[in-house]
């Protein structure tokens, strides 16, 4: 495999040592088909062990390694460096979340917001002996929304969140969609009551950043719009 010299900048921050994050420059040689994660591993394993970041599955399903590279939110494990051809890599943690250390951000609020939309089937009917019936058409309503890996790339890219940390954010709203539009669910009204809030769905100004950031190419904005229509139908 042909090697390639690259130069990159990483936003570093150790709260025990620095007051503010700072840019650190690295120069190294990597395989041409390396991913951003390969580059981070190379630095962490062979250049500076104190660099911290999150990663786990390497196959774009666990959602650990969402980062901002050259202004774009991406998953480090699935993004090859040649995507940013000719440009110097600039790697920083997901914006909009507090930094814990280096590229690691605090996602507790993100998961807490998920909890608030009641992300579980709410049933008011008796359980059948076997499965609930759901037609393939009904399943296809939620087929795309269940792809969400909760990486946070969308919520982090949302300008509404940057200015208002209490905004639920696209990931939680997508999860609300996934349950409200599940044919088996009886809890739509409870969830609508939760998201029909000034800090809920109405902080979404249809900016489309979330769709652009989503590594799974989910049409998040479209689903949020469907939710808005549903809420209006229900509450007026």
């Amino acid at each position: 495999m042909a090697k390639q010299k690259i130069k990159l900048k990483i936003l570093r921050y150790t709260p025990e040592k620095q007051k503010k994050p700072y840019w650190s420059t690295y120069q190294l040689e990597v395989d041409q088909d390396s991913t951003v994660l390969d580059v981070l591993n190379e630095i962490h394993w062979n250049i500076d062990g104190s660099l911290s970041y999150r990663r786990s599955c390497r196959s774009a399903i666990c959602g650990s390694c969402a980062l901002k590279v050259n202004g774009q939110n991406i998953l480090a494990c699935e993004t090859p460096i040649h995507k940013f051809k000719g440009k110097k890599l600039k790697i920083e943690p997901l914006p909009g979340f507090p930094i814990i250390k280096d590229l690691v951000v605090d996602m507790d609020n993100f998961f807490e917001k998920l909890r608030q939309i009641k992300p579980f089937l709410i049933l008011k009917k008796p359980l059948p002996d076997k499965e609930f019936t759901q037609s393939p058409e009904q399943f296809s309503e939620i087929r795309e929304s269940i792809l969400c890996i909760l990486c946070g790339a969308c919520t982090s890219s949302c300008p509404s969140l940057w200015s208002n940390k209490d905004y639920l954010g696209p990931a939680s709203l997508l999860k609300a969609y996934r349950f409200i539009f599940d044919s088996r669910d009886d809890g739509a009204m409870e969830r609508i009551d939760m998201i029909n809030d000034r800090n809920g769905i109405w902080r979404c100004h249809t900016i489309f950043n979330c769709m652009e950031a989503c590594p799974k190419n989910i049409n998040i904005t479209e689903y949020i719009s469907k939710l808005k229509v549903k809420i209006v139908e229900n509450s007026i």
Partner: peptide, 18 residues
């Protein structure tokens, strides 16, 4: 750790529709 993010104003739907 549990936090409530709600602002509880329910006027959002009307405002959005108008």
């Amino acid at each position: 750790m549990k936090k409530n993010f709600k602002e509880t104003s329910k006027t959002g739907a009307r405002v959005w529709l108008f």
